[in-house]
Structures are given as C-alpha cells and as structure tokens.
Design a protein around this nucleic acid. Structure first.
Length: 505
DNA sequence: ACGGGTTAGACC
DNA sequence: TGGTCTAAC
C-alpha cells in the first residue's frame, strides 16, 4: 500500500508566540519566566514559566503565587477616555510581529500558507527537487542533523526519505534565519502532508523540528490519540470517541461503509484517510487575512448609550486597521458584519451591511449605518453581552494611477498635489485610538511616510510593501502555469540555496 | 477545565 | 447571499 506522496510539507509554529513578541519587544532575558496577561487571565506562557508550573489556565494572581519572579505583561489596551472602564485589547503588536515573520518566510519560500497568526504551512516540494546534490548516504543523512526523526530512522537511498531530509535542511535554515534576523524561536514538523507535519511540529517544543518518514507512520498511528489530529479535536472527534476507540489505529478497524453510516460520506472519507496518515489537502498560498474582526464581550450593557460607546470603540479600531490594510494590501472591504449576543439568546446573531465606501467620514458613516440597522432588528434587545464588527469580502483596488503617473508624466509643475480631503481627514473622529495612518493622507508610498512615522512603523510599512510586491510576483508566477517558466524568480532565492550549491540538473 | 479575541471554512 | 456552526489558535 504505497502512500504515493512525493510532496514535502513543513509546518512551522512559533513557540509561545505572544510571549516571545513581548520578550523581544522589551528585551527580556531568554531564561526569564514571562506571561502575557489579558484582564485577569493569561493568554501566553513562555517555556521558562511553564517549567515553573504556570499554565494558560491560571489567573494572573495564581501566576504570581506559583512564580513570584514571573514577568506579567498586559496586552495592549485601547480606550477612548483614559482610565475608563470602556476599554478593549488590541493584538496589533502580534499582528505586526507576525507580518515581519511572514515577510521573511516569503522571501525564502514560494509556497506559503498562513494558517494562523503564528503558524505556516510550507510546500517545499519544488525547492527540494532543486537542492538535490551528488552526495553519499552519510553525507545526506547529516543534512537532517538538526531534526528529531520519528521511528526507526531514515534511509537516504530511498527517494522519499531523501526528499524529507532535504526538506528538513531547508526548514532548519529558515528557522535559523527567523531566529537570527528577528529573534524568535519556532518549532517545525517536516512530513509528506500537512496533517503529519502539523502533528510533528508539536512533538518537540520549543525550538526543535521533527521529521516524519513514511516508515514511521503506521507505528505513530498505533499510539496516537486521534483527537490530536487536526479536525478531530472537536465534535466529529467526540462522535468517534463515542464508538469506544481512542487511537488512530483503532479507528482504522472501521471500513468505509461503517464510517459512512455514522457520519456523512464526506466525513467518512476524511476520517478513513486521516487515521492512516493520508492527507492530500494542498498548501494554499495565502498570506493576507480574509477578514478582520474587532469584538468585545460585555457584562450586559443595558442601554443604547452603553452600546453606542462600544460600537464607536470597535468601529474605530476596525477602521484604523482597514486604513492600514488599504495602504499595504491595496484592497477594500465590501461588507461589514455586526454580530451580537443578547442576554436572552444563547448564541450570537449577525447582520451584514455594505461597507461604506470611500475614505472620508467613513467611521461616522459606519456608525450611522450600524445604529439604524440595529434599531430595526427586533432580536437586538438588552442586555447585550457581546458585540463584534467584521470587515469582509475584500476586493482589490484598481491600479493606483497617482504613483504610476509620477513615472509616466514627470510631475507637471502646477498640478494639484495636495488632495482636498486632507482637511477633512485630519480633524479626526477618533482621537483616543491609535492614529498611525491618520492625519495627512500621504500618497501610498512608504518611503515618503518614513519621515513622519516612527522608525518602527516606517519599517513595517516598507516591509509590507515589499511583501505585497512578493505576492504580486508570486501570483503572476502561478498564472503562467506551474511548469517551465516558474524559474523567473531565481535571483533573490540565494540565501537558503546558496548555503549548499544545488546540483546542475 | 472552557475564557476572550480572532480567523477560516463548511453548510443550507 | 447571508447567516449559522464548527474548529482551531
């Protein structure tokens, strides 16, 4: 039963990501225990703190008891009036760090899927092919020296094992670059598909990578509680558990018909394959978020006054993020979704609006639209325990002629350079909230803005612009067809590949 | 030991 | 399409 998969897939996972972001930001000693706090809870615990028994489910007070020397860093908080109970957390720090990391990854690897803020899948198949060299078995084996290998070891004379070895070398190089250039450690799994790679990346944390040769898969499934498999951690896994089985290998005892009777045809096939370590799902190249949410759980707002203040706060944060996204990703949200939970109803409901278009006054227009919608929504009744706003259905903006024209016609001397809405935009609606991109609406040229913005922000904008260029380049490559012409990109791909000169094929 | 804020994808 | 549900971090 050949598993007939020649892909090489890596899953890369940052170690205790939010905690690392704070450690790098604040220059904290690597060995110091640190937690990231959100209100009274703890949402990230670094490994030194875990060693001392701290867990994600502790409250801030318990952390201090278990580990008095533990550094607690609170997530960034936004509020309109300083020191007011109306405040919400912002994950901006982590989004920025994430963007830097993905920028680096995209510099080195073509096929990258952003799976979450701190996780990526890489399809290394093509890179591996280019990296094969003429070496003996021992030499090849040493290329995986950085990895922990599951099972009985590798046979570098086997094609599948060799490709895994080379994949692990690429992954290791990448991890070193993330470490050296940005300061973050991560763990990785290298396997022939996404599910196994993901499983493996969690096996040796932190700061280590794990290899999954085909020869170890069945042995792995013998011991593996199937709930650890991606997509089987929730309800579907629960239904499986009700059959009285625990390991993936035990699930293998059910044939397709039996599984189909209990679950749908679709889930049956999925389960049948996945407990055998088979997963043909592809790495989907994508590095930009598809939606943006600003949300807050509330303790029963009783009136419009309270609700409107939260709406303003949420809309304001979302609006800032939208402006930023428009600059760096050259696209605009088409829809605005309002979600809420009324005390009486046990789940959230949502309503969709067309996103107000155009830059000027948009925040005010959003607020007007939302309020009139909610007033006409009978299910919206007090008290309210949750509010959320989502920007979705992004559409690319038409090419920016302003900057193109600068090249085409060398700046006509008297031409209007200053847009009128400058005045409008700067008497801004939301003073208390971050105003990075607000103020003078400069042309979307990061280099220009660098004069006005903090160094860090300028770096970030620049980085994102470069990433955008990468995305454009990558998608252009795809559209030319996956064979033949894809070599166009070679130039910048030096850093990893130059580490070992690849075979002339 | 399930809590707050996010994201993505499937389904009807 | 819009809205809900599931799963994951």
């Amino acid at each position: 039963m050949a598993i007939c998969e020649d892909r090489v897939i890596a899953h890369v996972d940052l170690d205790a990501f939010y905690a690392q972001v704070e450690m790098v930001r604040l220059g904290v000693d690597e060995e110091a225990p640190l937690c990231v706090q959100q209100w009274e809870g703890v949402i990230a615990v670094n490994y030194p703190a875990r060693k001392r028994g701290v867990t994600r489910f502790d409250k801030a007070g318990e952390v201090k008891k278990k580990c008095p020397e533990c550094i607690l860093v609170h997530v960034e908080v936004l509020s309109e009036e300083q020191e007011q109970p109306k405040a919400k957390v912002s994950l901006a720090r982590y989004r920025e760090a994430s963007a830097r990391i993905f920028k680096l990854i995209l510099r080195e690897i073509e096929r990258v899927e952003r799976a979450s803020i701190d996780e990526a899948y890489l399809d290394l198949t093509d890179m591996v092919k280019k990296r094969r060299g003429i070496r003996d078995n021992d030499e090849n084996l040493s290329r995986a020296s950085d990895s922990i290998i599951l099972g009985e070891g590798l046979d570098p004379s086997r094609k599948d094992d060799l490709s895994l070895i080379i994949g692990s070398e690429i992954t290791s190089d990448l991890r070193r670059m993330i470490r050296e250039e940005l300061g973050y450690t991560c763990s990785a799994g290298v396997a022939h598909n996404k599910t196994l790679a993901k499983l493996a990346s969690a096996m040796n944390k932190p700061n280590c990578q794990t290899l999954v040769p085909n020869s170890c898969v069945q042995g792995l499934m013998e011991k593996l509680p199937f709930r650890k498999i991606r997509q089987l951690g929730g309800k579907l896994g629960g239904e499986l558990e009700a059959l009285g089985v625990e390991t993936a290998a035990q699930v293998q005892c059910y044939n397709l018909e039996e599984l189909s009777r209990r679950f749908g045809q679709k889930d049956a096939h999925f389960v049948f394959d996945i407990v055998r370590g088979i997963d043909r799902s592809e790495v989907v190249p994508r590095s930009k978020p598809k939606s943006m949410l600003a949300a807050k759980s509330l303790s029963g707002e009783q009136d419009w006054d309270g609700v409107n203040r939260w709406l303003r706060m949420l809309a304001s944060e979302l609006h800032d993020r939208m402006l930023f996204d428009e600059e760096v990703n050259v696209r605009e949200a088409r829809n605005l979704v309002i979600s809420f939970k009324s005390g009486s109803v046990p789940r959230t409901t949502s309503k969709t609006l067309p996103m107000p278009r155009g830059q000027s006054n948009r925040l005010e227009r959003m607020l007007k639209e939302m309020q009139s919608l909610l007033r006409n929504t009978p299910s919206f009744s007090f008290p309210i325990d949750f509010l959320g706003l989502t920007a979705t259905n992004f559409e690319d903006k038409p090419a920016d002629n302003e900057s193109i024209n600068k090249f085409l016609k060398p700046s006509a001397p008297g031409s209007h350079q200053a847009p009128i809405e400058k005045v409008q935009a700067s008497k801004n609606e939301n003073p208390g909230i971050k105003k990075w991109l607000l103020g003078p609406k400069a042309p979307p040229d990061p280099e220009k803005q660098a004069e006005e913005l903090s160094q860090e922000t300028a770096d970030f904008l620049l980085a994102k612009k470069l990433q955008r260029d990468d995305d454009i380049e990558a998608s252009r490559q795809y559209s030319t067809g996956k064979s033949g012409r894809a070599q166009l990109k070679k130039p910048r791909r030096g850093t990893i590949d130059s580490f070992l000169q690849k075979a002339p094929d």
